[in-house]
Design a protein around this nucleic acid. Structure first.
Length: 731
RNA sequence: GGGCGGUUAGCUCAGUUGGUAGAGCGUCUCAUUGACGUUGAGAAGGCCACAGGUUCGACUCCUGUACCGCCCACCA
């Protein structure tokens, strides 16, 4: 028998073990033992990492959770599929490459669309390759034969098919509406891509002109040249006499036609209780304008400059225009007060640009428009029933057809769904899925519009220049990866998937959109459970970020302490939905734990020659009775903990059992028992039995070390099965 | 402004049907080379934020308060 080192050196084994698993083919459920052909499937699709760089500790955490669940189910004999893929992450990747170009002293407009996209694809490919090798290094038992990419052929077809179906149903529509315009990124973005920042601002209270009766307040005087009304609350007696009247006046050299309207949206107690309505540059105002049929007057362009305003204002940046108008107001003696206030302003998540609400012709997905449900397999929704996407999204969660872990996130989800507005899905980006719409004549005012999976016949059609919001394709992920709309074998077998494991921060971006898309296109749910994990923060509770320069490469940690140690440290006592602080000390501690197991195995191997585990095990001594009971209890605890996604409880139980119960107590007791000829054989059996069960129970968490030790037991003829990875889970 | 969490040992956190509080790391004492010093034995350390209530009994359920965190939100 070969000698084992006195301590476990992970780097000596990990690559070989992963290769052994790959060679076995068992990552692919089609290759799992034949007896499991009728086994119930268990499926997870990997939340596809963005091809914007490399994986960080948060990914390592997310992937470990999934691999634990996957390995557990695979050992239980389920037909287990963990499907890998990457996300093109349109806006994030494009922004990243634009920054690289900037450093090179060039820009995308100089390259042109085609050349630019080549650059992006090259970057994405490099990022992809890194990500895949990182996933492998983490021990992820993903079925690489099914790898997908949100922009590959199959997924593109899914996107076009999905778009067309929703277009034909009238859910996707083109509309001229006030949207969130990012002047820096030069694209529209959705409500979810906005980040609010608090800033100091000034609330100006003034009158448009000396003879206009109602003073108004605003933080954006420059937009006031776009006002078409003043709104007051219907119950506000101060202004009741003016409601319905219309005024022609001149404001900063711009003629205005102002109607006074009464609207519930106005807060009596804020400012003067009167709101200057700017329909083109405020979403709330646009809604008021719609209710009162007020005209919309655009005064700011895509570059955040004044598009009208004569000599004084036209062409000026909004900040300059504000100053000019404030000065004009002061000169005219129209200002009543200027008070500093804190204001939260909207900025674009990716570019950081200050959002300028503008009216623009864009594509939207209607969430409040009823449609007829096709082929519903959802409880409580009938085929042919009229329903809205919003109702659909609410229904599957409120009826518990999809479970959320931790449960309280369902409240956050409902809050979001209930306040949801139509989703703007078009983007003025080059990188992404081109909108599958073709126009005859001008795109702005086409004679004819065609939507389909491919271009229509005839030469006089031009495709829409814009691309789709990246989350449109991610929304299809659970079923586009399984072959929809084409090959349906995988889809039949593995969908709905079992559980999805994203961070809680993308509940709205992604999880909700998957529920929407799957409900609409398949009439079913995308997954049975949502396991939301928390954010991995640094030792001081700060988020890992480039600007904070506190990034830690998971592979560096894995090299230093072993992948298993990193994995176990990440999930040890990390409850679902809770942020965890990453402390290198913790990883070190878990390396010690791995080493403890290593030495337990060494002890057993050194003290046991051969055992026959087919013969019954007897509990003779008190130590025997106790350890066998504890083993049973631990097995049950790990089992029920994993069944209910309480991974942290499983790790705790295993740690205690291995180190305290087995190593500290039983192994010590066994040293005496092994001296006693009457007990020796039975004690050896108990030692081996416990070690085998421990390796199995711990395998999902520490796959490399346990597999290495399994191979040692096999060489010592203590076990027969060639691979721990597919050995039967203990009961 | 609205919503959701958190407040438990020095630090980071577990604690699912309410029954006299647990882990990792850290600290202190002792042991020994025996599977492991990446070790073993032991110890100190908590009125479980606060105030009420329900209960025979509450860290656990209810109400309120304070502080911290997060998400959403164009009170212009």
């Amino acid at each position: 028998m070969k000698e084992l080192d006195k301590s476990y050196d992970a780097s000596k084994y990990e690559a070989d073990i992963y290769q052994k698993w790959m060679d076995s083919g068992y990552f692919n459920p089609d290759n799992l033992p034949a007896s499991d052909d009728n086994a119930e499937p268990f499926t997870i699709v990997l939340p596809p990492p963005n091809v914007t760089g490399t994986l960080h500790l948060g990914h390592a955490f997310e992937d470990t959770i999934q691999d634990i669940l996957i390995r557990y189910r695979r050992m239980q004999g389920r037909k287990t599929l963990w499907l890998p893929g990457t996300d093109h992450a349109a806006i994030a990747t494009q922004t990243k490459v634009e920054k690289i170009l900037e450093k090179e002293g060039t820009r995308k407009s100089e390259l042109g669309r085609e050349k630019f996209l080549e650059r992006v694809e090259a970057f994405a490919q490099g990022s992809h390759d890194t990500i895949i090798s990182q996933l492998k290094a983490m021990g992820a038992s993903l079925d690489w034969s099914r790898e997908a990419y949100t922009m590959d052929e199959a997924r593109s077809l899914a996107v076009r098919t999905a778009f067309k179906a929703m277009y034909d149903d009238g859910l996707i529509y083109r509309g001229h509406k006030v949207i969130n315009w990012d002047p820096k990124g030069q694209t529209v973005i959705s409500d979810e891509e906005i980040v609010h920042q608090e800033r100091d601002s000034v609330l100006y209270t003034f009158k448009y002109s000396a003879d206009f009766p109602i003073p108004i307040s605003t933080t954006r005087p420059e937009t006031k040249i776009g006002d078409t009304a003043v709104a007051v609350h219907p119950d506000d007696e101060r202004y009741a006499e003016f409601v319905g009247k219309e005024y022609d006046l001149e404001f900063a050299g711009v003629p205005l036609h102002i109607k006074v309207v009464a609207d519930e949206a106005v807060e009596k107690d804020f400012g003067t209780g009167a709101l200057g309505v700017t329909p083109a540059h405020s979403l709330i105002d646009a809604e008021i304008a719609e209710r009162h049929r007020l005209p919309m007057k655009q005064v700011i362009n895509e570059f955040a400059k004044m598009s009208i305003g004569g000599e004084l204002l036209e062409g000026k940046k909004v900040a300059e225009a504000r100053e000019i108008i404030v000065n004009w107001l002061r000169e005219q003696n129209l200002i009543i007060s200027e008070e500093p206030i804190k204001q939260s302003i909207a900025t674009a998540e990716r570019s950081g640009g200050v959002i300028e609400p503008l009216p623009k012709l864009q594509w939207f997905l209607a969430v409040n428009k009823p449609f007829l449900m096709k082929n519903s397999q959802i409880d409580g929704i009938k085929t042919g029933q009229e329903i809205t996407l919003k109702e659909l999204m609410r229904h599957v969660i409120s009826t518990n057809q999809i479970g959320i872990v931790p449960e309280h996130f369902s409240k956050t989800y409902f809050h979001w769904v209930d306040n949801l507005r139509d989703w703007c899905i078009s983007r003025q980006l080059w990188f992404g899925h081109r909108i599958p719409v073709w126009y005859k004549g001008s795109a702005a005012n086409p004679e004819e519009i065609y939507s389909g999976v491919s271009a229509p016949d005839g030469s006089d059609w031009t495709q829409d220049e814009d691309t789709l919001d990246t989350w449109f394709s991610s929304g299809l992920w659970t079923f586009s990866t399984l072959g929809w709309p084409n090959e349906i074998a995988d889809l039949k077998t593995f969908h709905p998937t079992s559980v999805i494991v994203p961070g809680y921060e993308i509940l709205f971006f992604w999880v909700a959109r998957m529920i929407l898309m799957t409900g609409y296109h398949l009439g079913t749910i995308p997954f049975k459970d949502i396991y939301l994990h928390g954010i991995v923060r640094d030792k001081d509770g700060k988020k890992f970020s480039k600007s904070a320069n506190n990034g830690i490469d998971p592979l560096e940690m894995a090299e230093k302490y072993g992948t298993d140690a990193l994995r176990f440290a990440l999930v040890f006592n990390a409850a679902p939905g809770n942020d965890t602080l990453f402390d290198e000390q913790k990883v070190k501690g878990m390396k010690h734990f791995g080493n403890k197991l290593w030495n337990i195995a060494r002890f057993v191997l050194a003290n046991v020659d051969e055992v026959n585990l087919d013969e019954p095990i007897n509990a003779i001594t008190e130590a025997d009775i106790s350890i066998l009971n504890q083993l049973t209890q631990t097995t049950q605890k790990v089992d029920s903990a994993l069944d209910s996604f309480r991974i942290h409880e499983a790790t705790q139980s295993l740690y205690d059992f291995v180190w305290r119960d087995f190593a500290d107590v039983y192994i010590e007791a066994s040293k005496l028992q092994l001296q006693d000829e009457a007990q020796k054989a039975n004690t050896e059996k108990i030692l081996v039995h416990n070690l085998i069960q421990i390796l199995k129970l711990l395998h999902p968490f520490m796959p490399f070390l346990t597999e290495v030790l399994w191979q040692e037991l096999k060489d010592a003829n203590l076990v027969k099965e060639p691979l721990l990875m597919v050995t039967k889970w203990p009961k």
